[in-house]
Design a protein around this nucleic acid. Structure first.
Lengths: 190, 190
DNA sequence: GTCTATAGCTTGATAGAC
DNA sequence: GTCTATCAAGCTATAGAC
């Protein structure tokens, strides 16, 4: 029986996401991904020519949902921009408390693939971060703050720094400390 | 001929450092480490009972040199604390320009080992970061700034955030943007 | 497009001699 | 303490049937 190819592909990516994110890219084997997706390895390799290609597809699939979720974290917080930034980091703090949370998939991929500089997944990770940075810049520029590009970068640095520290220490209060610094960065000093 | 056991151990750790840091922990094999150290695998396993033990030894060996280097980056910069913090991040920015630079070994280890929560290497990474954070807190407290613990944390978040962004984008200017934010955090607002 | 089966290699770790 | 030799399991990727 010939199943819907798109559905199969989707199942594979979902399985890859669970294992790449949960165990790490190198630790997750193509065998395990195929088993979890409920297909054979032959089918897996029919849809993705190599593990590297699957890594790229994994991050590409993560791009939009991650962006949307984080943007919502800010937009759903009431108040002016500083309060919204605080809300963003508070929601990050809550997230880091979960045992299933294991940091940012893009950052962890970049960390794992640092040894292979040209890897396509690194470009996807970079583009993903740039996209959110540009979105932040828009929000900051709309408030007529000076140097919106610099401020957006600094907020991004605090965001990934908070993720990194939370991953290392398994302590959600780092995200709150980062939030306070980020909120100050987007506050108009009269 | 029986060589100096301590020297052999040192050679192994040096080889492990080059490969774990250069290629990643999972990517570096015990075979490759033994070959680079100029010993057989049997000798490697005589000194370290498992790969996990070697990973721990790798990070333990990195702790003190990394701490000392970063402390020197700050201490060797002339001026008051904000200028010194700027100097610290400027030296980080210079470092990230090297093709051999591949981020922070502790952060990358935490990213790779996020799938195995109890791993001893994670505790070593956490202790290393805490140590530098406490050292920074001392420097900040000496300047009679309020909330030195919070400020030290925020500087640490900016530091690791800058490293993360530099690793993802391969752009040294992120470290400079982080430095400006960090300097502002340790500036007395009169 | 999906299957069974397996090639060909690398992995972490060990046995036993000296 | 270091060697040679090797294990069993795991890995990415492929062959060929249907």
């Amino acid at each position: 029986m010939v199943r819907d190819s798109r559905a199969t592909r989707e199942q594979i990516i979902q399985a890859a996401d669970a294992l790449f994110y949960g165990e790490g890219i190198r630790s997750a084997s193509m065998d395990a991904i195929a088993a979890r997706a409920g297909v054979t390895k032959r089918t897996l390799y029919y849809h993705f020519p190599s593990k590297d290609a699957l890594i790229g597809a994994y991050l590409t699939a993560r791009d939009e949902p991650t962006f949307t979720r984080q943007a919502a974290w800010l937009d759903e917080t009431k108040g002016d921009l500083p309060e919204q930034i605080l809300g963003l980091f508070e929601k990050l703090a809550r997230m880091t408390k979960s045992a299933r949370w294991k940091g940012c998939g893009f950052l962890r991929a970049a960390a794992e693939l640092a040894g292979t500089p040209g890897h396509p997944a690194l470009k996807i990770a970079s583009a993903h971060k740039k996209k959110f940075e540009a979105w932040l810049e828009g929000r900051i520029a709309a408030k007529d703050l000076s140097e919106p590009m610099l401020r957006a970068r600094q907020v991004m640095i605090l965001l990934d720094g908070a993720v990194a520290q939370a991953l290392i220490h398994r302590d959600p209060t780092y995200a709150l400390a980062a939030g306070r610094a980020a909120a100050a960065l987007v506050t108009k000093h009269v």
